[in-house]
Amino acid sequence: MTETTVNEYRLPLAGVAASDEALGLSPVQPAAIAQIEGADVGHVRASLQANDAIVPCGPLRYLVVSEVTRAPALLVRLREGCPDADAVDLSHGWCRIRVIHARASGVLESGTWLDLESASRNGTASMPGAFRGIPVVLHVEATDRIAVYVPRSYARCLWDWLVDTVHGFERD
């Protein structure tokens, strides 16, 4: 069952159908999503713990995703490790949807102009973009697993589109 709140905010993906999850879509949210801007990647990495991930979004701009550490503690670590940078909690405003599917890059390429197939061949990659006009940050975690970070107001709509897209791939 999917958690319904993170840091006291109700998740827009609470109550999605278990059958949707069986398609290879995961609504499980991290404990925190933060953005840090103005720090070099070395300082950001030095602030991370084992369960944290760094998702590059542009020059000196990163999402930091923690599976265990809640936002207040994550922000303290980032601000201590990168004192000249700006770190902000995005946990209340952004959601993560993982596409875990043998054709994950194909599923997402159907709604975006980004070439995820070559990005996944080159290892972990991330890029800001749009999926059918919805602003997203795509993070290729493995060839069959891509995390999609999306503003929470678009999360349910994106989820429904992804369900439809995966159903189309299942028919192929």
Rank of each mutant, 00 (worst) to 15 (best):
M1P: 02
T5P: 01
V6E: 02
E8L: 15
Y9W: 10
E21H: 08
A22Y: 02
Q29D: 05
Q35S: 13
I36H: 02
E37W: 13
A39F: 03
A39Q: 01
V41F: 04
V44I: 11
V44W: 03
Q49K: 13
A53G: 12
A53C: 09
V55L: 04
P56Q: 03
P56I: 02
R61G: 03
L63G: 03
S66W: 00
T69P: 02
R70Q: 09
P72Y: 06
P72D: 03
V76Y: 08
V76W: 08
R77A: 10
R79N: 14
E80S: 14
V88K: 15
S91T: 15
G93Q: 11
R96I: 08
I97Q: 02
I97L: 11
H101Y: 09
R103Y: 09
S110V: 04
G111A: 12
E117W: 14
E117S: 13
S118Q: 08
S126I: 10
S126K: 01
M127T: 14
F131Q: 03
R132M: 07
G133V: 04
L138I: 13
H139Y: 13
H139V: 08
E141S: 13
T143E: 11
R145K: 11
P151F: 11
Y154L: 04
A155S: 08
W159N: 01
D160E: 14
V166R: 00
H167Y: 12
F169W: 12
